[in-house]
Amino acid sequence: MSDENKPGWKTIPIGGMILEAGNAEKYKTGDWRTFRPQRDHDKCTNCMICFMYCPDSAIPLKDEKVDGFDYDHCKGCGICAKMCPVKCIEMKDENDFKD
């Protein structure tokens, strides 16, 4: 059935239009994930290749260093793990993180 917390047809913009710029950030795609990337910080050389290849901009940078993963938006595609030259990203079963 429908989610009663979401707005109805009388109030949403017509034709599927999105009237707000850049609001894709609000759409949490992280729950599509079946595998979760995990980085071994000791092996990471901070080459930023994973950052460049991530199709979802889900690898944030902080102080010019890769800084974890944005799990709200990471879809778990595994591209970062594939591209990492030192193979320090492991894709782990998402079920292992469920409480």
Binding site: S2, G16, M17, I18, L19, A21
Partner: peptide, 13 residues
């Protein structure tokens, strides 16, 4: 007033 036209629209909308 930048907008998006024609985005993916699944079971929720």
């Amino acid at each position: 007033n930048p907008i998006t036209i024609g985005p993916l629209d699944l079971f929720d909308y």
